[in-house]
Amino acid sequence: MNKKIIYVILMALFATFSFMFTTQKVKADIDGVTVTPLIGDSDISDRFQIIGKPNSTRTLKISLSNFGIRKIRLRIVPTNATTSMDGKIVYTDNVKSGQYGLKYAFADMTKAQTISLMAGKTKDVSFKVKLPSGKIDNLILGGFNIYALESSVSGNANVPVWITDSNKPVGGIVTLHNLALDVMNKKPHIIVNLQNKELGMMKNVIVHMTVKRKSWLDRFNLGDKTMIADLTYPKVAPNSRIPVDFDQNTTPIKAGTYVVKGAARSGKATWTFHKTYTITQDQANNINKRCKGLIYNKTTTYILIVCVLVSLIFLIFWAIWYSGRS
């Protein structure tokens, strides 16, 4: 029998027995890799849940299997949950204590690890988690972000770790954090960052937001249009930003004063926002030069040219009239 066929059969059997005798796997978007949190006796099988006292230590184990045909190096990084633009809980950002009101960062409780995993092999990795010395008020939503170090292998897997002093559900509070600029797919974006500054997960957060650049052209109804966002975030992580994206497409970022207004609602709670931000010319230039296909609006230039021409015509007629009187 061909060696390649034998290898495929063995790998299929390996995958079958692994599925039968392990706990529920975490969805992994790394080609050929499965990730399984070894929970033990618990009804919860897709995450670790720690209810512990301050200064206590827990050991968490994750099983990783390589079903590919090549050796792979995996990086396992502890971090805190953040909220994506489409309202999902993600663990891809490097979160530090102090961000968005976060008192304790999961990255400070345990260390990142790098492992090498041969083709067709499984390895269990242990992490000692040292809980903070202070009281944990409600919920710390940490997790492990797992990704391959090889550039040819994309994707990542996440293993959530919920740390609490009780099982009581808690809510959050939404406030306005800042206005930021970014480049995505070589297009400029204005992002209004709200934040959940509390240690409580939120669900179904509805956001209505407007952004308007102030201009003297507003008097003639020729200024920039008001940008409007109506979004729903199914889930919002504790102590995380809530990004409200305004995709500019082919419109370049303009320097000036921007007025941000809006409201967020979750259940019966409602929060309103109204603040003014300034985008400098240097900030605008830094974003625009990294973008492609921008179309610049020349309305202001045309109006100035018309004003200059009208002024020149007026001066010419005035000079003719004045010379005729003398």
Rank of each mutant, 00 (worst) to 15 (best):
K235M: 15
G143H: 06
F246N: 10
G68I: 04
I146C: 05
L13Y: 06
T16E: 02
D282E: 10
F106G: 07
K187G: 06
G293Y: 04
W271Q: 07
L309Q: 01
G324Q: 12
V211K: 09
F273P: 06
L194K: 13
I190T: 07
G155H: 07
T83F: 06
N158G: 05
R290S: 06
G172S: 08
V90L: 08
A255Q: 08
P37R: 07
K121N: 09
T251F: 02
F144G: 01
A237H: 10
S151R: 12
I191Y: 10
I287N: 02
N196Y: 05
F21C: 08
H208P: 00
M1C: 09
N204G: 01
Y104L: 11
K186E: 12
K275F: 03
G68P: 05
T82Q: 07
V170D: 00
G223L: 02
F317G: 04
F67D: 04
I320A: 08
Y302F: 14
L74G: 11
G293N: 14
N156Q: 11
S323Q: 09
T57H: 01
G223Y: 03
V26F: 00
V174I: 15
R290K: 12
L102Q: 02
M202H: 04
L217N: 05
E198R: 00
I5Q: 10
G267C: 03
T164W: 00
I320E: 01
S151H: 08
S42D: 13
N94S: 12
H189F: 11
G134E: 02
A264N: 11
I305T: 14
R219T: 04
P188T: 13
R213V: 12
Q99Y: 05
F48I: 08
S326W: 02
R213W: 09
W216A: 14
I30R: 11
A157K: 12
K96G: 03
T110Y: 05
F144D: 01
K121C: 01
A237E: 11
L222Q: 10
K289S: 10
M184H: 06
K27R: 10
K3A: 15
M227R: 15
M209C: 03
K268Q: 07
R47H: 07
K103V: 13
V211M: 12
D108M: 09
A229F: 04
I9V: 15
K135T: 02
F127R: 13
L176D: 05
K88D: 08
T299L: 15
L304K: 13
I39G: 08
V308L: 14
V90Y: 00
T57F: 00
L312Y: 10
M201C: 01
L312M: 15
I191G: 09
M109K: 04
S215A: 09
I253R: 10
I50L: 13
Q195P: 00
G40S: 05
D124C: 03
L194P: 09
A119S: 14
S97F: 08
M202E: 08
M201S: 06
L304E: 05
S84N: 00
A269K: 15
K225Q: 13
M184K: 11
